[in-house]
Design a protein around this nucleic acid. Structure first.
Lengths: 166, 166
DNA sequence: CCCGATTTGATAAGGATTATAATTCTTCTG
DNA sequence: CAGAAGAATTATAATCCTTATCAAATCGGG
């Protein structure tokens, strides 16, 4: 964690920016919630716990700055708010997302699934790919399993019923 | 075009909605600008040309309705506004986009490039895919060609220079 | 042609983000 | 170590996009 913060610090310095306490607190919140997809408001509330004097505008500015440095990616799942998602260190592609239309959960896929597709796009459409965004909408494994369990239950009840009737 | 409007009309009726003149005018604008990615405001201004009395709220409501019916898809390219993109008729997947980071152009890929990837996701992550969003960010063929032309030009000038020097 | 339900238009309200301006912090310099 | 220039911060106002509200208009069935 400390190492990672130091490296971000260096990235900032390389562009003549400082790692102020507010910026550091914001980065820490992002690191501590790496799996989440926090909105600016979410980040603000979490940062406030460690640094109550911070202002909302500063959080917005910091997130913008981190986006510029490609430390985070700004994403949008269609609700009205932008969310900020930490990049894997050193990753040159943005990870993918699985959005559940039933429970709203957002899972991540770190692996790059698009290598071949990108090559195809570059060749066929003569388009130099620099980055991508890929999100699947569907039903997550938790909701699928819940459904299966319910179906099994229903089936068992049905059988019991049959037995009673005999 | 008329046929397509009729089919949309039927889709509306199937859900007890009417194809009012305002809705029809909105759909026509979308059909006439099929390759574009219009914002609600854009649509509003275009509809106003044919039906000056229409209100902005109606356009928003109609676009929401069309999104619900999967006639259009609501997308977001990271600028602050939602854009509305007509689906291919009968397509069960949403087409992909190529966003140029140099000139801002947005091109479409109608082909489905994700068949195999979706199968993999379903198997490996146990996630039932219903839809997807795929956008590539990079440099479009027009900008690439412009660059190449410039490089050729530069190179020719260099050669001329060499000759002069001799 | 009338009635109940739907849809509309104008505008207010809401929510997210950005701009502004005064203040505080840093860092540099002498 | 004081003073000054510049960067960053805070609080808040302003802006922009979208949604909610509600009276008025419209539509389709009887």
């Amino acid at each position: 964690m400390e190492g990672r913060i130091n490296r971000i610090k260096k990235q900032l310095h390389a562009q003549k920016y400082k790692l102020t306490p507010q910026r550091e607190a914001t980065v820490r919140v992002l690191l501590e919630n790496e799996q989440d997809h926090l909105s600016a408001e979410d980040v603000y509330l979490l940062v406030k716990e460690k640094a109550p004097e911070i202002g909302l505008a500063t959080v917005y500015r910091t997130l913008e700055l981190l986006t510029e440095l490609k430390v985070v990616d700004k994403i949008n799942f269609g609700d009205g708010v932008s969310r900020y998602d930490l990049r894997q260190e050193g990753a040159n592609h943005f990870h993918h997302h699985l959005v559940c239309i039933e429970c709203g959960a957002v899972d991540e896929i770190q692996e790059d699934l698009l290598g071949d597709v990108e090559k195809l796009v570059e060749r066929r459409w003569h388009f130099k790919v620099k980055d991508h965004r890929l999100t699947f909408h569907g039903i997550c494994h938790r909701c699928l399993e819940k459904r299966e369990a319910e179906n099994r239950q229903d089936h068992e009840n049905e059988l019991e019923h049959e037995v009673e009737k005999v």
